[in-house]
Design a protein around this nucleic acid. Structure first.
Lengths: 152, 152
DNA sequence: GGCATATCGTTATGATCATAACAATAGATC
DNA sequence: GATCTATTGTTATGATCATAACGATATGCC
């Protein structure tokens, strides 16, 4: 704890504060949200990106690996690994697209569908927990602002 | 691209949307912010967490590795790796605390100080870029809300 | 048909991330 | 002083992340 004040104020003063940088704030807020989620669905051995992937497939049905990746904001190389892990656990199945040999179509298995339907209410509850410090109208504003940032 | 509409609406309908989950929004917003930063300081071969670490040391002076990690929101195992990389590049130096043999004190080298002072204005400019889609009062509100989320 | 370009998936590399288990030291308590 | 507990740093494991380079397939245009 003791920083041992052997050098008082060695750096040139500056108005700069790390806490004022959005990136840092966003990273910490995401850490919190992610931690909340893992606390709840961790017993299912699922991570946040894995859950997002399953949820996407649940809503949209079969998707090419590449498009699936874009819809969950993951690079091709990353969505590949996630799909591999989900496939190993039989939550997802793959097949080649007959009309476009480049594509790999990903879809939920029966087990995958069952799991997602079990997790969705937990996720909703978890989002509520994360947003608990905010009032209703503040939540709405936050969504609006975050959405604008993400879209750039 | 073509999803090949071979299965219309196979899942039970649900009000759930992935885009409504804060975690997902925060992750995407952080991706954007991080990408903006890397676009600008990438030529220095620095990542966002590495920059944050340097910035902390710049403001606070020498810190124990553990405390440094807490101040940049990184686990002990992770801050260790970051410090090792920065140390390898001579941006940071370490020494043992004489009064508490458990502690490793981290501090910027002369080269580290020079680099931070070069990067700070870039970071500030980068934050401005990320926040460009927002009006002044919206930025203020966003900070307020994100801060509240991060603290829990 | 043939060719340039674009897209898809893979591989490799390196940097975060979180978690658990562990040895060493410090501090508190008696 | 001896012992119990807390903290610090390390190691190991596994999952994201981003980036670049690459072969295979589609698509556009001529």
């Amino acid at each position: 704890m003791s920083t041992k004040a052997d050098a008082p104020v060695r750096r040139a003063a500056s108005d700069y504060r790390l806490e004022d940088q959005v990136g840092f704030l966003l990273r910490r807020a995401y850490q919190r949200a992610s931690s909340n989620l893992v606390d709840r669905i961790g017993s299912y051995d699922l991570t946040a990106p894995q859950y997002a992937t399953l949820a996407r497939l649940y809503k949209r049905g079969a998707l090419s690996q590449n498009l699936l990746g874009r819809l969950v904001a993951m690079e091709p190389a990353n969505i590949r690994d996630v799909v591999l892990r989900l496939k190993k656990r039989r939550l997802v199945a793959t097949r080649r697209d007959p009309t476009d040999k480049r594509l790999i179509l990903i879809d939920l298995t029966t087990a995958g569908v069952a799991l997602v339907e079990q997790l969705i209410p937990i996720e909703i509850e978890c989002t509520a927990t994360t947003l608990a410090p905010l009032k209703a109208d503040q939540k709405r504003i936050l969504y609006e602002l975050l959405g604008r940032l993400a879209e750039g």
